[in-house]
Design a protein around this nucleic acid. Sequence first.
DNA 1: CCTACCGATCGGTAGG
DNA 2: CCTACCGATCGGTAGG
Lengths: 198, 198
Amino acid sequence: MNKEKKNRPNPRRDVIIAKAAMLFRKNGYVATSMRDLAEEVGVEAASLYNHISSKSEILQDICFRVANKFMLNIDEVSARPISALEKVELILRFHIREMINNYEEVNVSDREWRHLPEPYLLNFQNQRKIYRQKFASLIEEGIRSGEINEIDAPTAVIIMLHAVSGIESWHRSVKKIDADQLEKNMVMILIHGLKKNS
Amino acid sequence: MNKEKKNRPNPRRDVIIAKAAMLFRKNGYVATSMRDLAEEVGVEAASLYNHISSKSEILQDICFRVANKFMLNIDEVSARPISALEKVELILRFHIREMINNYEEVNVSDREWRHLPEPYLLNFQNQRKIYRQKFASLIEEGIRSGEINEIDAPTAVIIMLHAVSGIESWHRSVKKIDADQLEKNMVMILIHGLKKNS
DNA sequence: CCTACCGATCGGTAGG
DNA sequence: CCTACCGATCGGTAGG
């Protein structure tokens, strides 16, 4: 008897969550019904409940998987023997690549977390806060060492995180430039600014 | 007999739309019911329909008022006898101030436009596209004149617009820095970049 | 995995 | 501006 449902691989469940992420991103969590999702998966709505226990459980799965991935990355990058500015740039690049390669789930996590039920909402908001504080600390370290301009670190964090979330517009549109070019441009603008140094 | 309902001042209607903007921003358009809105206004749900014809009409009002304001601004700024980089900076500052002073409606317009019914959705998306093209043209002008780094202009537009939308996080949090400081910091980071010129 | 169904809530209308 | 109400749809369950 398997007690740990969560750790057992369940391909059907993964399909449901992947389809849900796609619908949640496109139409929003609230506007997506379990019947919409069932149709996408190819079953009746009632059958979904053999694999998931509620609609909000799907949202929890998506939001926390994304949050954990980013948290692991910032800790891994922070531990490296490189300068603070290099760390900030690496984290920025990680955000850009995740937004491109995993954009359904990352966008859902970014935009739909407000609909998490308690106590998950509070938990998610806390993780978010901790992540931003870690990011801000790296920027402050860079300011102290003279690599980074003397700006308000929390404001810089907000700009970095939200600028990257704009990639959704790029992903949906006709991609005139490729992913590598996009990453290069974003890093250029955010790290070096718009203005040319004369 | 007044045929033009739209142009007649209607303070009650304005209150309804302001309360709706606040609820739509906080909980999302779909998750806000007409009963929630009625309670906020202090009437029964049915009474709202004496002032508005549908829930989606409220969303239309908010989205297009915001879109028109930004469009007017970019045209006004573009016509000025100043450099392209100065124009870009002025537009950026306008976005920041609107996000701070009018943040309920601007945020609703930014995040909930997807729920506009056709043909308004298509109309809104077109206006959005035109706005971004105008913005991108100014950046390209700045690149040609040598004021702005050689980056992909549409990518720069996406970064500018989305970075500013992050102000919502600032607005909701304990405001450790004031609005002027926030504007100064955002312009610094986006125009001059994170990296200090050594 | 399905059929059949539940109570709750939705946007909106009729009529006064 | 209200009471009373409509059909549609929601998330979810029972039972097989």
